[in-house]
Amino acid sequence: MARLGDLERSVMDVLWSSDGWLTAREVAARLDHERDLAYTTVLTVLERLERKGFVRRQRAARAHRYAASDSREAVVAEAMMEALGTADDRGSALVRFVGSVSAEEAEILRRALEPPAEPADGSPEATPPLADGSGQ
């Protein structure tokens, strides 16, 4: 289970959930993995992540200390930007469920979805209000 990808993820989770800088040893201590990980493994993962730009390193007195370069939200936002594809980019790196929709098409769909006049027959479904995805 402790594949590299999973490890990287867990390490990032630790870094994201902590406020300040952590040494590799501290990261290893906070990892709650199925089995105890060798300190060197954690160090390797941290170095990999640093090479990829997800993690920053600070030289401390004895050991290096690490922190996430961007918040989780920033990384999510980056992924979302790519997923939404700014332009009409059919680069096909990602296969989207719905591509971009023009204002006119949106209007058509909006009419299709429009709730009819009477609100009495409200469906009991607890769909929370759509987080405003449109105001991007």
């Binding site: 719905v98 098409e105 949106a106 759509l130 105001g135």
Partner: peptide, 11 residues
């Protein structure tokens, strides 16, 4: 599809 089409629109 319709819901996402609306949600994804540049509104």
């Amino acid at each position: 599809l319709a819901r996402l089409g609306v949600a994804r629109a540049p509104v």
